[in-house]
C-alpha cells in the first residue's frame, strides 16, 4: 500500500459518501444518472468476485464490501425508494449504456491477462469502469445547472483514478516485476474522459460561479 493508492481509495470512498449525502439530505437524485450507478454496481460485482475466495487484507475486504453495498444501495434507492425515485431525470438519462456493457465485455474477451472467467470479468470491470461515467456526464450536460454535491461527486470520482495512476507509476518504479498494462491504460483513458469536466469544474471554482457544462 502506498500513499497514492490510499489517497485514491479515500477519494473514491469520499465520492460515494458525497453521493449518499446528496440523496439522503435532499431526498432527491436529480442530476444523478441511474445508468452510471448501475454500471458501477456491475463493475464492483464483476471485479470483487474474489471477495470470498482470496483474502488479501482486512482493509481490502472491508472496502470491497462497502463499494458493493453502497453501489447496490444507490441503485435500489433510485429505482425503488418512493420519495427519491420521483426525482430521477428519466427523460434526460437516455445514454444507451447497454452498448458500453457489450463493447467492454467483448474487449475483455479479446484483451485479458488470462483467458479464465475471473480474469475476463476483472478486465471487463476495468474497461467498464473507464466508460461508466459517460451517462452521468451526458446527463450533466443536458440538465445544464449542476448542484454542488453532484459536481463534487463527479470531481472526486474522477480524481480517485488520477491518484491510482500515480500509484502505478510509483509501483512501476519501486517493484521489479510490476506491470499492469490493462489497468494503467484503462485508468489513463478513464481520467482523460473527465478532462473537460475538470476544466469546467476548475473554471467554476476560480470564478466562484455555478458549474455549467456546455450543451
Amino acid at each position: 500500500m502506498n500513499i497514492f493508492r490510499l489517497a485514491g481509495d479515500m477519494t473514491h470512498l469520499l465520492s460515494i459518501i458525497v453521493l449518499l449525502l446528496k440523496i439522503y439530505a435532499t431526498k432527491s437524485c436529480s442530476g444523478i444518472s441511474l445508468k452510471t450507478q448501475e454500471l458501477y454496481a456491475l463493475v464492483f460485482l464483476a471485479r470483487y468476485l474474489d471477495l470470498f475466495t482470496d483474502f488479501i487484507s482486512v482493509y481490502n475486504t472491508i472496502m470491497k464490501v462497502v463499494f458493493i453495498a453502497s453501489s447496490l444501495a444507490i441503485v435500489w434507492c433510485m429505482r425503488l425508494h418512493p420519495l427519491v425515485k420521483r426525482s430521477y431525470d428519466k427523460e434526460l438519462d437516455t445514454f444507451r449504456h447497454y452498448f458500453l456493457i457489450g463493447g467492454t465485455f467483448v474487449l475483455a474477451l479479446v484483451l485479458n491477462e488470462k483467458f479464465t472467467l475471473q480474469e475476463i470479468l476483472w478486465a471487463f470491470s476495468i474497461y467498464l469502469e473507464a466508460v461508466a461515467i459517460l451517462p452521468q456526464l451526458v446527463l450533466l450536460q443536458r440538465s445544464g445547472n449542476v448542484d454542488n454535491l453532484t459536481g463534487q461527486y463527479v470531481f472526486f470520482l474522477g480524481a480517485y483514478r488520477a491518484f491510482y495512476i500515480l500509484n502505478w507509476i510509483y509501483r512501476y518504479l519501486t517493484e521489479p516485476r510490476f506491470t499492469r498494462w490493462i489497468a494503467c491504460v484503462s485508468g489513463i483513458v478513464q481520467t482523460g474522459i473527465y478532462a473537460d469536466f475538470f476544466y469546467y469544474y476548475f473554471i467554476s471554482w476560480k470564478n466562484n460561479s455555478k458549474l455549467k457544462l456546455p450543451a
Binding site: 493508492r5 482470496d54 488479501i56 481490502n60 463499494f67 480474469e119 491510482y164 489497468a183
Partner: peptide
C-alpha cells in the same frame, strides 16, 4: 501467474 498476486488493488 504474476497478475494474480497484483490483484491487491481495489
Amino acid at each position: 501467474n504474476d497478475s494474480a498476486d497484483f490483484k491487491d488493488e481495489l
